[in-house]
Design a protein around this nucleic acid. Sequence first.
DNA 1: AAGTTCTTATTAC
DNA 2: CTAACGGTAATAAGAACTT
Length: 369
Amino acid sequence: MDYFFAQIEERENPRFKGKPVVVGADPRQGSGRGVVSTCNYEARKYGIHSAMPISIAYKLCPNAIFLPVNMELYQKVSENIMEIIKKYLPRSQPKVVLRGSPTFEQVSLDEAYLDLSHIFYDRRKVRTKKIFKEVRVLAEKLKKEIFKKEKLTSTVGIGPNKLIAKMACEKAKPGSELCSTTGAKPNGLLIIKPNQVKLFLEPLDIEDLPGIGPKTAAKLRAIGINKIKELKKPSKSKLKEMFGRVGEEFYEKARGIDETPVTSEEIIKSIGRQITFEKDTRDPEIIFATFDHIINEVYRGMSSGGFSFKTITVICRFQGFETHTKSKTLKESTNDLEVLKSEAKKLLLKFIIENPKLIRLIGLRVKIC
DNA sequence: AAGTTCTTATTAC
DNA sequence: CTAACGGTAATAAGAACTT
């Protein structure tokens, strides 16, 4: 979905349209901590973007409309949209399944994959061009249906695998040369056919490759690698030596290779909560009241799923953003709230004893089993 | 020496 | 001139610790 949270807010309040809208923390409340969750394209013109500290966003555009995150609303809209997307799976199992079976994979509130490879199978008599036309019509129909029912625009990327589909989707939005939509709104659709993958990938920046973030990009740039074309130069073993296991994946990804299946069921492996204080503190009242709340939330999240835990990790971030963790693995897995409370508090207490700095954030995470 | 546990780093949304 | 910087979750790697 295009600028999802902000677009929903525009829909709910049409007078916001055409004005910069920033969804995230309130820049005027408390100490103005927090970040931008999502903003619309008008706000992006001022240099505002997701994950930016809200204090900076405010400086860049104090007149923007700053809105709190209304997660319940976004969740509901998301559910509606996901239901629409699921309908684009075939009603019956296709005759031939070579690679992926038709599947739907929700990645986040506003992102999902649909495996439509069945459309291409067992149709040797049909011209490839015609099949791609069919796929384009399908994508357009999906976009239109979402717009009709939810009044929200979306962007679709299509490719021979998840990697290319995702990258195509990114490149179908404004800020890209490949973007076909004029003006500042996304609402895009980009299809990359198998024989276009090389030409599509090579001129892109290394950071456009999912998995390459700022840290990895900096290391690559340091050795003169900026474009995906250049990323194809080092050997697989060289990349492994530099980046470990993920380095080997970069080698494949740079060549457009990605065999990860579209999978519907994602198994949750851990549950956690963390809270940043309004102001850095060492007040035990505040710290432990907050921590009690966190413990209860984690416990609820865990037991509501019928899980037990065995490993407990406490997170503590001090003034200056220095972050540390302490963890404890129990002999046996349990779902005892009292055990969670006492073990978690023991770990937090250690932090407080051994580090005299003011505390910015505390958190708790349990590995579930 | 091998298996576990602990801690940090990085990424994504 | 530099800092500013939320929450949830996964995964990898290496160090530290046990058995």
